[in-house]
Design a protein around this nucleic acid. Structure first.
Lengths: 347, 347
DNA sequence: TTTCCTTTTCAAAACGTTTTAAATGGACAG
DNA sequence: CTGTCCATTTAAAACGTTTTGAAAAGGAAA
């Protein structure tokens, strides 16, 4: 593969001139430029990124580190994120370096990657409250963007959906159908999104004057089995919920299975609504009956996420560094007006 | 961050000596070495990877390119691969550069990445027959390893499971239970693994003297819906299968749903067996009834895959560059002796 | 003719390493 | 005293770019 030096030698020019010609600097003679460009094309010249990086100090790569825990709730969704993100970043000629966080210390992997000096910034996902990674990167002054927020008043760059809004929308939808016994199958307690959803849930039911006992607000890793077990427990209660809000479609899947086994009909005896990340494999519209959801496609978050990071890296301008999107209610057949025998509120 | 030069200056040594001291060369005085090492530690020196790469010509990174098609059957499994692979590679201080194949031309992304000269090799997944990527990389002389095989007699480095063996095992298991009407819900026709499974299936049924009509051997993208629809069609046949072999657990999920809707009991009226990549979210043992499978955990393939690539890169020795693993039969409750009314063979 | 621009090109340094070839200094033998 | 060998260290080149400061060439104005 031809180098810049070779082109220079070939044409009897200095590397400096060739470099300038190829990088569109104004001070090079039009004929020289053409000559250089032609020769470069002919010799199939491609600038050596590594060399460029050495002098520019930039690597043109960003890192993404995910937890290795095979039970992590995000290995289902992170594929979606990576697909979208990587293609967006590629448009700016930025590569994505992927790594699994092998250490128990959550910042260790970031530290190592920074020390290697191979990335210019990071995409951080699945933030928890007071996330040490965010504190670390902020202290180090390394650019990053978070998918989600460390807290409602976070000062770092992020893209997030309104998780308070998700549960508020769900509760109001169910309340409008007459439901008074609404349960919440939330995500992991440490995840910021789950905290926000719980907050939105509590605020909205309070606003509507609905009382929800603590046993009807539960947390868990968003898997099918969690939905199944939690729903089974709730539906065995003396006063079971007439509606369940699920953290994700996978969890709703488990709720469906539990209801099926117990002979409880959806939506007649039980309304189910879930938040939908819109992952190709498990489509809410293919549920039987089709699942009502609050929808915020993960893919849609990739564009903004990439833009924000690029802006933060100083490679673009004008993008707000903090963005919040609203989820959309998509009404299908899993929610219906409450049966009168289930319409008595919890005491 | 301290550089090697700075350490040299600090100690009044030449960069060469410092470099040698830090890299464990024998010809440096023991006292000098200690001094250098201490100073390096004290100044928190970390070698600049980019600079090392420039001189060594190696980048210490390998690339993995996946297709962007959101309906691709592999976005479900590639997360698993990447998790395992990345952590294995990290042990050898190799980073994984991830990219989505945005071009319609399958080799275009590889070409670009090679031209940037930022990776030393590739992991290629989901090979198809006569895969152009493999031909391209071979021609270019770029090291790579394939997860799967381009063909049975492939000459490139690969790790694969015996896909002929998968269907052979399944067929023999069912035949031993008396089944004579065995259907195959295979993967996409272009995928090499599906070709091999079909071959193994046909060879084994032929060996056992079982005739299977062409309509009972079907191909499709391994999603739940495919399993559902294909099973519905087959079970509506005048002579429905008494056993179905599924390409994956997800597809088996669809078969279960179809059977449930048709009032067909598993395993009494229908035996179901699937191949299990052992993905955390959909566990065969949680099926109702628990699903009999041929199991070959994807995670288990990551170690060999990484070893092979590292060997191919010349960073290790002794690993065979081509490895084939056998899938294991795990008998659960979804397969049972055939009912006598279903025991008549297809004609 | 000199001075002063303008346009274009160049040599050299820089980025942070590794590696090659050579130098230094001391010990020892002759 | 000279030469050889050894252990250790060094200067310099190399990797492939970009960038800085300067120079060269040519023309116009004084």
């Amino acid at each position: 593969m031809a180098t810049l030096k070779q082109i220079a030698k070939e044409l009897g020019l200095s590397p400096a001139t060739v470099s300038r010609a190829l990088n569109g600097f104004p001070e090079v003679n039009i004929d020289t430029r053409k000559l250089v460009e032609e020769t470069a094309k002919q010799l199939e010249y491609r600038p050596n990124k590594i060399a460029q990086k050495l002098v520019s100090g930039r690597s043109g790569m960003v890192g993404m580190i995910v937890r290795i825990n095979p039970r992590s709730p995000f290995d289902r969704t992170f594929a979606e994120i990576m697909l979208g993100l990587s293609s967006r970043l590629a448009q700016h000629d930025i590569d994505l370096v992927f790594q699994v966080a092998s250490e128990s210390d959550p910042v260790e992997s970031y530290r190592k990657m920074i020390e290697k000096q191979i990335v210019d910034g990071f995409i951080v996902n699945a933030p928890v409250a007071n996330d040490p990674r965010i504190a670390f990167l902020t202290k180090k002054g390394i650019p990053f963007v978070v998918h989600g927020r460390a807290s409602k008043d976070a000062v770092h760059p992020y893209f997030d959906i309104s998780n308070n809004g998700v549960t508020e929308t769900a509760v109001r939808h169910l309340a409008a159908l007459g439901h008074k016994r609404i349960a919440l199958l939330n995500g992991e307690k440490t995840a910021v999104y789950a905290i926000d959803r719980e907050e939105g849930f509590r605020a909205t039911v309070a606003d509507l004057g609905i009382h929800v006992p603590e046993r009807m607000i539960v947390n868990g890793q968003p898997f099918e089995l969690y939905g199944y077990e939690a729903a089974k427990a709730m539906l065995a209660d003396a006063t079971p919920p007439s509606a369940i809000i699920c953290v994700s479609t996978v969890v709703a899947n488990g709720v469906y299975r539990a209801a099926g086994e117990l002979g409880i009909s959806i939506p007649r005896d039980l309304s189910v609504i879930a938040h939908d990340d819109d992952i190709p494999q498990l489509r809410a519209e293919n549920f039987v009956p089709p699942l009502t959801v609050t929808s915020a496609p993960l893919q849609a978050s990739c564009g903004p996420l990439a833009e924000i990071l690029i802006t933060r890296l100083g490679l673009a301008q004008g993008t707000p560094l903090q963005q919040v999107a609203e989820a959309e209610l998509i009404e299908r057949a899993s929610t219906a007006p409450v049966l009168s025998r289930l319409a008595t509120p919890w005491t």
